[in-house]
Every structure is written in C-alpha cells, then in structure tokens.
C-alpha cells in the first residue's frame, strides 16, 4: 500500500479521494500519482500543482520525480502557516 496525506486546504479538497493505493509493483512518482487523480479530482489536482506545494515521502521533502515503493507515505504540503 501507498498512503496519501493531504494537509491544510488540500485536505478539504481531497475528502473524496482514496487515501490508500494498492501498490501494484509498478514504479511511480508523486508527479504520476497526481496525474492519475486528474480526471476524477480536477480541483484537487489544480491545487496540488501550484508551485508552492511541496511533496514528502516518509516525512522527507522530495522532488516530484522521486521513486515510490510499497509502504511509502506520501504527503502533500501547502505553504506552512505556524508560529
């Protein structure tokens, strides 16, 4: 399984998205995952593609072409607003 997490306003847009994907052995990247969501969730995908959005794999920020493996936790992070 690959688990997906959406934070901030991305979480609101991702309410109807399946947050776990069966890993089929095929090597993918966060960029490809986003592409696969496009038809069913165009508003979410538009927000995910905003340039300030970062992606992390297993809690480390990575590039969008980072390879994904079974058991990975992918999180989509909009600009942070703590403090």
């Amino acid at each position: 399984m690959i688990n997906l997490l959406f934070f901030g306003r991305l979480g609101d847009l991702a309410q109807n998205v399946d947050h776990s994907i069966v890993y089929d052995g095929q090597l993918r990247t966060p960029k490809e995952l986003v592409h696969e969501l496009e038809v069913a969730h165009p508003r979410l995908v538009a927000a995910l593609r905003e340039p300030q959005v970062l992606v992390s794999v297993n809690k480390m920020v990575v590039k969008w072409d980072h390879p994904l493996f079974d058991g990975d936790e992918i999180a989509f992070l909009p600009p942070v607003t703590g403090g």
């Binding site: 934070f7 901030g8 306003r9 909009p78 942070v80 607003t81 703590g82 403090g83």
Partner: peptide, 11 residues
Amino acid sequence: YLKTKATFWKK
C-alpha cells in the same frame, strides 16, 4: 523559521 519551515497549518 517556525513560521516558514515547520509543518503547521492554521484554519
């Protein structure tokens, strides 16, 4: 840096 780097989001 807490304001710009740490993963918090305010609603």
